[in-house]
Nucleic acid binder design. Structure first.
Length: 483
RNA sequence: GGCUGCGUAGCAAAACGGUUAUGCAGUGGCCUGCAAAGCCAUCUACGGCGGUUCGACUCCGCCCGCAGCCUCCA
């Protein structure tokens, strides 16, 4: 039974989809005025993993993640660069897709853009005005009247009176209440603008998500996700807008992922303490970054540090090392028919053992997507595999297939083990493989001649260059890169 | 000030009212020409103080410390 922590109720709840077997999930995506940083990567990877798991357990999932391609920052950045807005956003959307692919994130089913959703945005604002929940301020902007919506604050646990007491920001005099937020902004000179009943202008930030999500998934859908910082005011406002306009429940389950931190501080654009995905990809293999993200629970803080990334790399190496040299699927299927009686028993036992690991993995994921525990199951499985690798190749096959399958649910272990272990980062020397092969062979020759000193010096030299040579029991040698 | 959440061994990170988390690192052993990898064994824990309980890292209260939101932010 799958349980998910719901921010709305502050509890883990049994997940029951609105329509049996189907799930609609909307995640707040990027505002595209700069490259994605590791914090964005976390959202992408976390919800990608959630999506993969939903599909694995048999749900028919519609996954929508929007792109915010019009807002103050985009306008400002385009102006700074002297760049056309559409050109700027297109550039960063492409970059985002590149980062996503690198991190083995599968694309969402739909990726609506704010600028292509103006019609539904305008429609929703019109309804809100008609219902008396929104008004045109004396500066021409359209605002949402927060006090008119019963239940404002129910997601973030905030109380309007407390908020007003804490209000420190300049009060916009056009607002009836300082907490009211803008739905439609009047166009200023040289700003992109769309026609509307209230004149030329552009949408406020919050309304686009209400419009796009209900547009793609209906008035009422199952899951809405995003970073913790969107809880308030963004998601609170979305509820006010959507439920205000449709009169229906907006979302059943709200999921929020924790922040990536650096030195115990939130990684963010405004603090300037961020690493972009592409920077990090130069230092570490993509799968290592993915492993790092999944090694802590999605709601916990995740501290970014070189040490942590290095550890993630070592850990992932252990899993790939377990898979190295094990023949998988193809032979397994072919061999099934040729097993004799005692082999069949061995095979059946291996299947049972595999099923046990699968069940534990599922149990972990069913518990609010507990990926750290799911990973621990993979390590238990790897240990079991290492034990039987040489003595029971048939069992090893079965376990290896399971390991790759379960790893795949997390977007991991899909590479060829040998390739993964030999590959370096973008910055390491990728063209040197042939030279390494040759040196390893030279060392093997020296070994056979019992020239230990020469053999060792070759090995030491390779090690100094980040290449580890390993001798197999059968007299051959393999090698791998340290990272 | 209001509201969230967190505090686990050298580092990272989970679960659980009484039984091994897991990964890295350390120590001892097996294996190896020596290594590496692997296997086996093993040492480091539950912020502090009270309470509930036969029994609490796990539940409750208080205190201390940390992070986040309340303003654009994933």
């Amino acid at each position: 039974m799958l349980k998910i922590y719901n921010t709305l109720t502050r509890k883990k709840e049994k997940f029951i989809p609105r329509v049996k077997g189907k799930i609609g999930m909307y995640v707040c995506g990027m505002t595209v005025y700069d490259y994605c940083h590791v914090g964005h990567a976390r959202v992408m990877v976390v919800f990608d993993t959630v999506a993969r798991y939903f599909r694995y357990v048999g749900y028919d999932l519609t996954y929508v993640r929007n792109v915010t391609d019009i807002d103050d920052k985009i306008i400002a950045r385009a102006f700074e660069n002297g760049e056309d807005i559409a050109q700027l956003t297109e550039r960063f959307i492409d970059a985002m897709h590149e980062d996503e692919r690198a991190l083995l994130v599968l694309p969402p089913d739909q990726e609506p853009k704010a600028t292509q959703s103006i019609e539904s945005i305008v429609n929703m604002i019109t309804v809100l005005i008609d219902k008396g929940l929104a008004y045109v301020g004396n500066n021409g902007d359209v605002f949402y009247a927060v006090t008119k919506f019963k239940g404002y604050g129910k997601l973030s646990g905030k109380n309007l009176d407390d908020l007003q007491a804490g209000e420190r920001v300049d009060v916009d005099l056009a607002k009836q209440n300082p907490m009211d937020f803008v739905l439609w902004k009047m166009a200023k000179v040289n700003e992109p603008a769309w026609e509307s009943p209230w004149g030329l202008g552009r949408p406020g930030w919050h309304i686009e998500c209400s419009a796009m999500s209900t547009c793609c998934l209906g008035n009422h859908f199952d899951i809405h996700g995003g970073g913790m910082d969107l809880q308030f005011p963004h998601h609170e406002n979305e509820i006010a807008q959507s439920e205000g306009a449709t009169g229906e429940t907006f979302v059943n389950v709200w999921m929020h992922n924790g922040f990536v931190r650096i030195n115990e501080e939130k990684m963010s654009k405004s603090l300037g303490n961020f690493f972009t995905v592409r920077e990090v990809l130069k230092l570490y293999k993509p799968e290592i970054i993915r492993f790092f993200i999944l090694s802590s629970h999605y709601r916990s803080p995740l501290n970014y540090s070189d040490e942590q990334l290095k550890d993630a790399g070592t850990a992932l190496k252990r899993l790939y090392t377990a898979l190295r040299g094990v023949v998988m699927v193809e032979r397994l299927e072919a061999d099934l028919n040729t097993l004799n009686a005692s082999e069949s028993i061995v095979f059946e036992n291996a299947k049972v053992s595999s099923t046990g690991f699968e069940a534990k993995f599922k149990e972990a994921m069913d518990d609010d997507f507990n990926t750290p525990v799911a990973l621990a199951v993979l390590f238990d499985l790897a240990r079991e595999l290492n034990k039987v690798k040489d003595s029971e190749p048939l069992v090893a096959d079965v376990l290896a297939v399971t390991l790759v399958e379960l790893g795949g649910l997390l977007g991991l272990l899909q590479d060829d083990p040998e390739l993964f272990l030999k590959s370096g980062t973008a910055e390491s020397d990728a063209g040197a493989d042939e030279l390494i092969d040759k040196l390893v062979q030279d060392r093997l020759d020296a070994k056979q001649a019992k020239h230990w000193a020469l053999a060792d010096s070759i090995r030491d030299n390779l090690k100094a260059q980040g290449v580890i040579v390993e001798d197999a029991p059968n007299g051959t040698s393999t090698w791998r890169r340290v990272n």
